[in-house]
Amino acid sequence: MRSDITFGQYVEGDSLIHRLDPRVKILISLVFIVVIFLARSLTAFVLLTAAAVVFVLMTKIPPRLILKAMKPLMFIIVFTAVINIFFMPGDHLIFEFHFIRIYREGIVNACLIVLRIMLLIVATSVFLTYTTTPLALTDALEQLLNPLKKLRVPVHEFSMMMTIALRFIPTLIDETRKIINAQTARGADFTTGSLIQRGRALIPILIPLFISAFRRADELATAMECRCYTGGEGRTRMNSLKSEPKDWAFFCLILALGAGVVLLNRFFPLLNVTI
């Protein structure tokens, strides 16, 4: 028996944040992102960092996973830092070498902006990717975007596509494994040769995989039609999402955090960041 395959980066857990209504979680992340951009003063950043640390601890997600989430954005982090350090003009010159001039303001700004990017990553991973299954996210998005249906945006169709894609990922992974085994048994070699040769060796895997995926799609469409599927019109859901007071309490907490940030910016400005 295979263990449950989890897609995306979802980390199994039973924390308060895991159990929040996914719709509220999406709203919370949006608000939290805005709050992060509102922060200007160092004091506000300290408050937000403390909050982010508390959230991470609440979810019991290993911090190493959070760091892992930052890896793909390392380039952007370093790039912004460099730009800020070298090209930010200011009053306190620290270092000068020919055309390179580094000011104190530049370094402070770089630090705070890097901190801001890291906070953004923590916010989205703690509230969305690490604590919400892709399926719950899809459902939540469908319901949040429901009003767009009036503008003829095919919200239901997109969400159905996502659900089916998620459903078929493990099936197609299995299939790929089978095809690789079958082709290996016929003498195909996927592990040696130059990059181009290896790339070419993938063709005998991809073509059967595509053909089979199309066949599956066709059969699935028939099966869905036979189960009276006619699109989103007139469809009901068995498990509609329900938000509880605790969801909105958490949402208010984030709003309070935003208010705190604004107040700290205003009354305790310290090493303010520009941009």
């Binding site: 399926l135 659900t163 089916i164 998620l166 459903r167 099936t171 599956r216 059969e219 699935l220 099966a223 869905m224 189960r227």
Partner: peptide, 9 residues
């Protein structure tokens, strides 16, 4: 084929 008629996860 049971795999091709199940829609949900």
């Amino acid at each position: 084929n049971p795999d091709n008629q199940i829609v949900a996860t």
